[in-house]
Measured scan of single mutants.
Amino acid sequence: TTYYDVLGVKPNATQEELKKAYRKLALKYHPDKNPNEGEKFKQISQAYEVLSDAKKRELYDKGGE
């Protein structure tokens, strides 16, 4: 599973699309609303952290993490 899959976006997604997808999923899986989905929330946050940063995203796209 790639970070793009976690957020449900395509690899060519814009920053705005990433932000929108992250917010939607973060609300859905937030531990306050969904106590059993803490791990999913962490995955979503990690994916967004990497993909929202241009340098980290470039490194990730080249095969790094």
Rank of each mutant, 00 (worst) to 15 (best):
H30F: 06
A26V: 14
F41L: 07
F41W: 15
V9T: 04
K24W: 10
Y60V: 03
K62W: 07
T14K: 04
P35H: 07
K24F: 12
K42F: 09
S45F: 12
K56W: 07
E49V: 06
I44T: 01
A54N: 08
V50R: 03
Y22T: 00
R23W: 15
K20M: 15
K55W: 09
A26R: 11
K19S: 14
K40Y: 11
H30K: 06
F41T: 02
D5F: 05
T14R: 05
A54Q: 10
K28L: 15
E17M: 08
A13L: 01
E17Q: 10
K33E: 10
A21I: 04
Y29A: 02
V6C: 06
K62E: 07
T1R: 13
P11Y: 08
A13F: 06
Y4A: 01
A13K: 00
K10D: 09
K10M: 11
G64T: 14
K10S: 12
K40Q: 07
G8R: 06
G64A: 14
G63H: 14
Y60L: 03
Y60R: 02
N36C: 12
N36G: 11
E58L: 09
L7A: 00
Y22H: 03
E39R: 07
A47S: 03
N34A: 11
A47P: 00
E16M: 09
V50Y: 05
K55P: 05
D53E: 04
L18Y: 01
T1I: 14
Y60G: 02
K10V: 06
E65R: 07
P31E: 07
L25R: 03
K19L: 15
Q15Y: 13
Y4Q: 01
Q46N: 09
S52P: 00
D5V: 05
D32T: 12
E37V: 07
K33W: 10
L25F: 04
D53W: 03
F41C: 04
G64L: 15
G38K: 13
K62Y: 07
I44M: 04
E58C: 10
L25D: 00
L25C: 05
G63I: 12
V50M: 05
S52V: 07
V6N: 03
L18I: 15
I44P: 00
G8V: 03
A21L: 02
Y29S: 03
R23S: 12
E16Y: 09
E49S: 11
A21M: 04
P31R: 06
Y60F: 04
Y3V: 02
A21C: 04
L25A: 05
V6G: 01
